[in-house]
Write a protein that binds this DNA or RNA. Structure first.
Lengths: 144, 144
DNA sequence: GTTGAAAAAACAGAGGA
DNA sequence: TCCTCTGTTTTTTCAAC
């Protein structure tokens, strides 16, 4: 069953996207719609899982994980890699991908030295290639 | 100036991470601390920008952007690439990286066909290599 | 850090355009 | 489907300790 997202839904989603704690009352003002209706629409978006969660974004620099890197790895020990990554604090993202390498890992470390250590711990799983991120230009942006 | 994040802060952050709209009252109950104190700590985390924002995560499948891909591109027309990506709805992430390729683009399209179209529009900027994501195993996870 | 009272916001219905 | 109006509950805020 498909949910039709109309322009009003879109406006609400745009407001919530970067201000998830915004009160219904304020959303109501901004889009000139009554609070019950706004609440109703948000509930529907949540029920249909169009809104999958409200999350809090932390400044990774303050958590000593300000260095972003991407590691491409080729391995036959898939489960081992997945288990390893799930347990590793440095790993924020893991994708099974097509191509020469079969996994892409996004890693947040305190420094490039720590990245080297992390990559060292991957050698027994398979050959890898790392790209240090010099600048995060866009991140996690969804245009509605 | 450095902010010392203690265990109580960490607990609050863990609760907020995937439930950004959780009321102070509930956080207060869960960690057995008075509401004003919880509120006070959250305000400090916000002021110090340790909490950088509260965001809403959408189900990209419902937005007709359920296919994740990564494109590595090598170009000398950096500004052109950045401008192009900022204007492209498909692009959610863009990183300047080290290595043979100098940019990594994360793309969300409706299908692989749409990915092909997108990659076609990049040819004039530079040679690129794309990896279709077959499975999103971990995404945007921060272990505190 | 706590308590407790005042203010503000969210919720739940009913009735109607 | 959306609105307004209402009362009720919950949450937030802010004082004093």
């Amino acid at each position: 069953m498909d949910h039709q997202i109309d322009d009003i839904d879109k406006k609400i989603m745009q407001l919530l996207q970067h201000h998830a704690r915004m009160p219904i009352s304020q959303i109501s003002k901004e889009i000139s719609m009554s609070q019950p209706s706004v609440k109703d629409r948000i509930l529907k978006l949540e029920d249909k899982k169009i809104i999958s969660e409200y999350s809090t974004v932390f400044n990774l620099r303050d958590l000593n994980r300000g260095t972003t890197s991407f590691i491409l790895i080729k391995t036959e020990h898939c489960q081992e890699l997945v288990d390893f990554c799930e347990g590793a604090r440095e790993v924020t993202d893991l994708f099974r991908i097509s191509g020469e390498f079969n996994y892409l890992i996004k890693v947040q470390t305190a420094s490039v030295e720590e990245l080297a250590e992390f990559q060292d711990s991957l050698v027994r799983i398979g050959p890898s290639k790392s790209h240090i991120c010099l600048k995060n230009i866009l991140e996690n942006r969804v245009l509605l």
